[in-house]
Write a protein that binds this DNA or RNA. Structure first.
Length: 863
RNA sequence: GCCCAGAUGGCGGAAUCGGCAGACGCGUCGGACUCAAAAUCCGAUUCUCGCAAGAGAGUGAGGGUUCGACCCCCUCUCUGGGCACCA
């Protein structure tokens, strides 16, 4: 086999495919055994969803950045793990299946193959032996296993609640998947629907997820988004008695300092007490209003048109501190699923209450005024005073600050048995089931309650392994069904074959069609599962069961994939503890900012849960996270089919080569910024690569006759080593490339030693690995360039005896001079005074004030 | 409305412990090579005035601090992202 590609010009096509083949055959980027004792470095990319459209131009951006780091760290002597895999469950493959009738796994396999080929063409230093695929039963077996652990610990339950339903996708969606009343995928309208759903109790982790954010080295904006999404607020729950009624209304408020300004209460239309307390004369109006609200889409209800609506219930509550009677209203500006679904309205100090009170002519009482101004009459003001201030009209709490009053009033209410401090979150539990085919089957069997109760009494009940303390159950058609989890040995629960992938309109999954799969009988002592259709067994120990037919959402597989890369083939555990101890957390995690509250929140939740189970050692999955910026179209707008400004990576690779594409995406600008693509721009880096080629090889492809000495280049070379190294460490790839361009420009006009040329190739190798590897071998060096130790800059070439300083007059640069490094201020002034350009400024002007910054500047400030 | 990020030549972007603004690349202009073109190489390129030497202005707008501000402070405008009746 050839040692290198052996073309006489820079034939990037042949060179790139030559080295890609060689790297693959030699497993050049396979991790070393963990027993080797080397320090580890784990570089993780957000793995792609293998869509039918193939790689887009944004993929190589993040992947090149991580690859530069991976290659650099290898040269620095680290044992590097840089894996790749496929997040392959999800709607598009299923929609393709519906259109073509082909099984989704068929299409998925095809797409993965395409993605892999495209990624291979970019020359990333990936350990392909660790490739994972979330749709592989050997992978999703462990996704199901983690679900069962959640189930066992009471964190997975079934609920029948209004949920987001997308008629177009024929599936429910999580809160996080609904954007402005439309589906995150496909931008279809969504509506509320009551359905039985699996839900994960992520709210139980709200505080942990919030607190741990402090310890993460993440982009601040992403942390802020998660903080906002979790939406913790501290306040008080306050109980209001109802006139002539035994029940109490509990409200939640963060402003209990304004309680003396409460002039009415508002219940959400969904509030369970509403039908009980509404007065006879108002019943029709209230019922009509509730119906009206239910017909409204959520967009109408919470959308931009925020005209307040509502009706009086005819009932009155009693203010717990003043004993005043205050009217009870129902209005849809109060949400049923936040807080207690009821609020105390303080129109003087809340914009929404103010607007409502104005519209319906309700009373406005001001009880807080600003620290530093007179009291305005809030009844005539245009806007309420919503800031903290000083209390008045508040009995014994007058003249307290809002913050003091919140404490005192909460305590006072508590002593009266009318309230207590309370913490609320915006975060809702994670809706975890989908009525789709192409997802992980939920490994649950449903049995009748009476069968369940008998079974759990048995000492040898087979399914005890993942049983929760409180059974999970639901009722339908008068029958109560209880969930029985599969055991570890029964995983993976594989997707059954079905005739049609069409979802139904009624929220049933396509798995429902697979009768043999759904209708089974189980043996409660042996765990044996049979389909109902054949082998009529009957008899002792057998009970009939129905499979859960919902599947998991796409986010499930990506919640723990960072762990599977560590032991991708392990059949005993999701990750081998020995591998986990060695590799730990990813040292670098890069991906798009669009996952700020989806994948990144869900994965933190699952990982933290695994931490609490003692399965992982670090509470957070991704201690260090980076978002690459979006690459826009040449016109500066987002790339899209409709704009016709999409740049296809395959075309670029064919025209300029993978090295040029990699280099260009890194040269475009800071990694984290949004930046527009430019076809002219890539020609610039392509020229640079050709220039490197010509500086190292003659026209016949043989090495140049290198110089014996290149002292003149030494400073530039060592500055380049220094700057490229520092820039890689700080992910400033654009300026690293600039520095290499500067060096090559200088080396083009000056003698160059072979050793210096080799250093240049090493610095270039992480960015443009194919050309670097090719030239490296033409200079007679052994395979592979990444095994050569990273060059060190020699300080003797960076320090000079003299410094060039700027002389300024009144802050304006007028001259410069070279002086010794240790030059004193007086000496510098003497030298400056006598200079021709400076002398005229000083004549007849008295003694200047001198600003002296050693080694930088001398500023003479004239009186 | 609220939160976060940003605004620098014709274009992408450099330069932030407060110390020569415009590195590097693109584009443009001029030149070399060529019969010619491509490729390559050399030079110029923030704006205004000037033949030049040089002078003045200049980092979204306005103010402030400082000997000195793209950088720090205040106010505003615009752009991108997120949240949005969460009491």
């Amino acid at each position: 086999m050839k040692a290198y590609c052996d073309c006489d010009f820079y034939d990037f096509q042949s060179i790139e495919s030559f080295w890609q083949t060689k790297w693959l055959e030699h497993k050049t980027f396979a991790t070393e055994p963990i027993s080797g004792g080397k320090k580890k470095y784990y570089v993780l990319d957000m793995f792609p969803y293998p869509s039918g459209a193939g790689l887009h131009i944004g993929h190589p951006e993040g992947y090149t950045a991580s690859d530069i780091l991976a290659r650099y760290k290898r040269s620095c002597g680290f044992n590097v793990l840089h894996p790749m895999g496929w997040d392959a469950f999800g709607l598009p493959a299923e929609q393709h299946a519906i259109l073509t009738g082909q099984a989704p796994d068929h299409n998925t396999t095809h797409n993965i193959e395409h993605f892999r080929q495209q990624i291979l063409r970019l020359g990333f230093s990936i350990d392909w032996d660790r490739e994972i695929n979330t749709t592989d039963p050997d992978y999703y077996r462990w996704t199901q296993w983690i679900f069962l652990q959640l189930f066992k610990h009471g964190l997975a339950y079934v609920d029948e609640k209004p949920v987001w339903w997308c008629q177009e996708l024929k599936s429910v969606l999580a809160n996080e998947e609904v954007i402005n009343g439309r589906s995150e995928r496909g931008n279809h309208p969504v509506e509320r629907k009551n359905l039985r759903q699996w839900v994960l109790r992520i709210t139980a982790y709200a505080d942990k997820l919030l607190e741990n954010l402090n310890d993460l080295d993440w982009p601040e904006s992403t942390k802020q988004q998660q903080i906002a999404w979790i939406g913790r607020s501290e306040g008080a729950e306050i109980q209001f008695d109802i006139e002539g009624h035994p029940d109490q209304i509990s409200v939640y408020t963060t402003r209990c300092d304004t309680i003396y300004g409460t002039t009415y209460l508002v219940l959400a239309p969904e509030h369970p007490l509403l039908p009980k307390i509404v007065s006879k004369s108002h019943r029709d109006a209230v019922e009509h209003y509730i119906t009206l609200t239910q017909q409204k889409s959520d967009l109408e209800r919470t959308g931009l048109a925020k005209e307040k609506t509502g009706v009086f219930t005819g009932a009155y509550a009693i203010h717990p501190l003043t004993q005043r009677s205050i009217p009870l209203w129902v209005a849809d500006y109060v949400l049923g699923n936040y807080g207690t679904g009821a609020v105390m309205a303080v129109p003087a100090h809340d914009e929404r209450d103010f607007a409502f009170a104005k519209k319906f002519g309700l009373e406005i009482i001001s009880v807080v005024h600003p620290n530093d101004s007179d009291i305005n009459d809030p009844c005539t003001a245009d806007i309420p005073f919503c800031n903290d201030g000083i209390l008045y009209h508040s009995q014994e709490f007058d003249s307290l600050s809002s913050a003091q009053a919140r404490q005192s009033i909460t305590q006072h209410l508590e002593s009266l048995g009318h309230g207590k401090a309370s913490v609320q979150y915006k975060l809702r539990d994670w809706l975890f089931s989908r009525q789709r085919y192409w997802g992980e089957p939920i490994p649950i069997l449903w049995v009748r309650e009476e069968d369940y109760n008998k079974a759990v009494q048995l000492p040898d009940f087979y399914f005890r392994e993942f049983i929760p303390q409180e059974p999970v159950s639901y009722q339908t058609a008068g029958i109560t069904w209880v969930a029985i989890p599969l055991t570890s040995e029964q995983l993976p629960l594989q997707l059954p074959k079905v005739e049609s992938y069409h979802p139904s309109d009624n929220g049933e999954s396509p798995l429902q069609q697979a009768k043999d799969f759904c209708d089974v009988r189980i043996h409660i002592r042996t765990g044996e599962i049979q389909s109902q259709g054949h082998n009529e067994h009957g008899g002792d120990g057998w009970i009939s069961a129905r499979r859960e037919t919902n599947t998991m959402p796409q986010w499930a597989g990506s919640c723990w994939y960072h762990l599977r890369y560590l032991s991708p083939k392990n059949t005993q555990a999701l990750v081998d503890p020995k591998d986990l101890r060695y590799w730990g957390s990813p040292d670098f995690y890069i991906g798009g900012a669009e996952h700020a509250v989806l994948h990144l929140l869900y994965a933190r939740f699952w990982h933290r849960f695994l931490f609490d189970l003692d399965i992982v050692q670090h509470p957070e999955p991704y201690p260090y996270l980076f978002h690459q910026g979006i690459i826009l179209g040449e016109d500066g707008s987002k790339m899209s089919k409709s704009r016709g400004n999409i740049v296809n990576p395959d075309d670029i690779i064919s025209a300029y080569g993978a090295d040029a594409l990699r280099l260009y995406e890194m040269f475009l600008g800071p990694l984290e910024s949004m930046k527009p693509w430019s076809t002219h721009g890539i020609e610039g880096v392509s020229r640079f690569l050709k220039k490197v080629w010509r500086r190292i090889l003659q026209e016949d492809g043989k090495p140049q006759n290198f110089a014996e000495k290149d002292e003149a280049l030494m400073r530039s070379l060592h500055e380049t080593i220094y700057k490229v190294t520092k820039d890689i460490e700080h992910l400033r790839f654009n300026t690293a490339i600039s520095q290499m361009m500067i060096f090559v420009n200088e080396a083009t006009q000056s003698p160059l030693r072979k050793d210096s040329a080799k250093i240049l190739l090493q610095l270039l190798a992480p960015f443009a690995p194919h050309i670097a590897e090719e030239l490296w071998h033409r200079l007679g060096e052994p395979f592979s360039i990444i095994h050569a130790p990273w060059p060190q800059s020699d300080p003797q070439y960076l320090n000079f005896p003299n410094s060039r300083i700027v002389i300024m007059i009144n802050g304006k640069p007028r001259d410069e001079m070279e002086i010794p490094l240790d030059c004193s201020q007086d000496r510098a002034f003497e030298l400056a005074k006598s200079r021709e350009k400076i002398r005229p400024y000083l004549q007849g002007r008295g003694i200047p004030r001198i600003i002296w910054v050693p080694q930088k500047l001398l500023n003479l400030v004239l009186p």
